[in-house]
Design a protein around this nucleic acid. Sequence first.
RNA 1: GCGCCUGUGGCGGAAUUGGUAGACGCGUUAGACUUAGGAUCUAAUGUCUCGCGGCGUGCAGGUUCGAGUCCUGUCAGGCGCACCA
Length: 963
Amino acid sequence: MLKIDLSLFISKDMEYNFREIEQKWQKSWVDNKIYQISEDNSKPKYYVLNMFPYPSGAGLHVGHPLGYIASDIYARFKRLQGFNVLNPMGYDAYGLPAEQYAIQTGQHPEVTTFANIDRYREQLDKIGFSFDWNREVRTCSPGYYKWTQWAFQKMFNSFFCNKEQKALPIEVLIKHFETEGNLGLDVAQSEPLTFTAEEWNSWDDKKKSDVLMNYRIAFLGETMVNWCPKLGTVLANDEVIDGVSERGGYPVEQKKMRQWCLRVSAYSQRLLDGLDTIQWSDSIKETQRNWIGRSEGTEVEFRIDGTNDYFTIFTTRADTMFGVTFMVLAPESDLVQKVTTVEQKAEVEKYIKYVKGRTERERMIDRKVTGVFSGSYAINPFTGEKNPIWISEYVLAGYGTGAIMAVPAHDSRDYAFAKHFNLPIIPLIEGADVSEESYDAKEGIVSNSPAPGKSAVEYDGESLMLNGLTIKEAIAATKTFVKKHNIGRVKVNYRLRDAIFSRQRYWGEPFPVYYKNGIPCMIPEECLPIQLPQVEKFLPTETGEPPLGNATVWAWDEANKKIVANSLIDNKTIFPIELYTMPGFAGSSAYYLRYMDPHNDKALLSTEAANYWQNVDLYVGGSEHATGHLIYSRFWNKFLYDLGISVKEEPFQKLINQGMIQGRSNFVYRIKDTNTFVSFDKKDEYDTTPIHVDVNIVSADVLDVEAFKAWRPEYKNAEFILNDEGKYICGWAVEKMSKSMFNVVNPDMIVERFGADTLRLYEMFLGPVEQSKPWDTNGIDGCHRFLKKLWNFFIKDDSVVATDGDATPEERKALHTLIKKVTGDIDQFSYNTSIAAFMVCVNELTKLKSTSREVKEALAVLIAPFCPHIAEELYHLLGHDGTVCDAKWPAFNESYLKEDNMKMMVAFNGKARFPMEFPVGTDNATIEKAALENEQSAKWLEGFTVAKVIVVPGKMINIVLKK
RNA sequence: GCGCCUGUGGCGGAAUUGGUAGACGCGUUAGACUUAGGAUCUAAUGUCUCGCGGCGUGCAGGUUCGAGUCCUGUCAGGCGCACCA
């Protein structure tokens, strides 16, 4: 049977034709450059930013634009309030999927990436954003990554001064070395070194270069890295989840490698302190605090028995010095060699081999107690006793000093170890029972320190005595003692690690570095950017070098300052260039600065642009970046701030984390071994298998049976057992939105069916922006209906009806209630309640049969942030020429809400009973009297007396009764 | 284990500073208009009860004239960190 869409034949001229309206205005906005903005000192600035997307091959689903819509509404709102709003968009274009695709197909990642970007742009354009596309950035374009390379070089040429808590030029440090060695320096470093000026001056360039690496903010370091053999590259800590790679889920192992690193740890304290100055959610701040992991403690020196060698341990429980019964070293610790005795050598080596063979994942899942005795002992500086030194994987090389003093009575891990290897346990806290488990709590009175009948070691006639003190006092006393007698020092430790900054991949920013006989040198700034070379194959070379090893033109001609063929390398004037590339976070760490001045080829951004735009006022993005991008960006910005490039210490003033949109999958139920499908409500009568069905052929959980038959060839002859109403009902579940679940809903499809304004409205109406929620197309009709009602409110008989003159008090009340609500709600990102208020208001005005121009003018502007297309159309139908984007946000007038009478609820003992009305301004005494008179007339109150009357003006009168 | 967040109808979710819990939307039910309805409009819709009136914000207490909101405990779910000394 031929289906005819009747709407094509029935001409209803002024129906809400969203397709026409949206196309028309989207084109007009582009033609008239409505969203192109520039610095304007006559207006206050406001900078709204979304985390820019990685353009994946799958395109956008309805979840992606959620944050963009939320921030677009805010940007438009701010603009209507008179701000000069920067609302840019770009692409985080480097990423693994494009490279993996390149390896499989030989297609250059740039081709794939650009195609994906085009698709993203096409989809984004349909939603009606106010992005200034003139400022678009792509991390993979040379004009952009020039400044990524430039920043890296600045970091290479800087060190971090702990005293001033800022980055300084490396020349300052070199001058200090030349005159005083590293005496009296307090700077961030990889490991403590001691040398004199004479030593420094006597060293050759290679040695100097090596020593400087200990201090540079971007440095080459031998570090334990997360190596993913399957991906052929190293990964950052936040790219490893449960011991497998975040992308692909491949196993990851620990490996020592030479890598470029960024000394993020130097900024630990500033990263921590900065959190107090920004408006981010508590949970994300807390996550960052955890990640930075500040802990105050004490470092204490222990002498290795029989030698003059000391080693250092870090503890937060300095009060437990008298409960130490053994020491433990991390298996990777350099000290292991030093303390292993000849007798224990074989045992220790066996153990180290065992630990190396265990992957991170195995260690995490199987947490058994293992360890080996080294053969040596350490002298406890307080008791003078010898404690055996053990080696165990439960001590981490990367934290503290990689060595601990074990107090089994008061640390559960030490306790488990002591029990397993039969080591002594000495309780120190009064009343602590350690026969079954350790007493880890940090409260109680210290005893046994020193033990009765024993005495502590004397230093200058003084010895430590902690008995009777609280744990807090004991820690403080020990710290003071340690400092005074030079047994150790008070120390703040951070868990935050330096970031590993190189990847063994092709599709990333190349390092502007060449190697002059083993010494890394920077390619001169004026030669930047050095562009990613062409390669034939995107895989590592046969000799195991990174993919850039395949490049044939990848050598630096120092004299002529240009890139030349590898074959010319002579290590005299022509040198090899770095084969590593930068990680994903390199390009995404400072992109917000580049948006301020995206076409500048003289500087990352001009001083004028930096001073005008300052930093991002509102940043919108997912909370999954809490320990990655949001830390790196803050670090990067602080570094640029030290250089005077960035004018604000924190890059993102306010952060909103939008929730994820989950998919809502639909299921059909196939009766086993048949091609018959049974409706959800009857499935329990059969033995069935649920099968995912494309949500796009299901409407309100009712399956379009014909579309299902056409969906896949195997269902062509499917049969159905329908329910009593003759419908096929599908089951449903909330799952991740993904292709394999057939629950992906594209924004394009929604825009096609309902329009962009409806999509924008509905995405915001779904619930709070910050909350994760499943997508459910079923509810969208309500929003679409609202826009139709809005349209019909404006338009009667083919034209807009707008009568001049004052609006009635009722109209003004409805309108100004809305203005107040929406203005307040947008500011708090409470968009769903704003939209509800719109619905109420339009219903109210429709009931009032309002035709007032005053009301319609205001309404068109108020809806503009949410639904810019319909707003623009209505604005023009009202006779305006400009764009609604630059209209003035309606002013709220309190006096329109005032009423003659105030309605008050009379309550007894807090329970509401009946309402009463009083003229505005009635004093409390009168209200009280009137309410009491009412009370006396109520029969059921006999036997009670009035104890008290509470009047909440304008709200309620509460009469408190007693029997 | 530690830290953070969240628990409200059939569903998504409202509820200013403690002041008539359930706005708004979906869904459902009834009616109207229709050849028709997966269109539109009107009304009802927390729950028990014929009604009066009870009971209701995960659970148990507490503070208060009055608690979804504040406090204590507890349970459930989510997120983050995790052998961090």
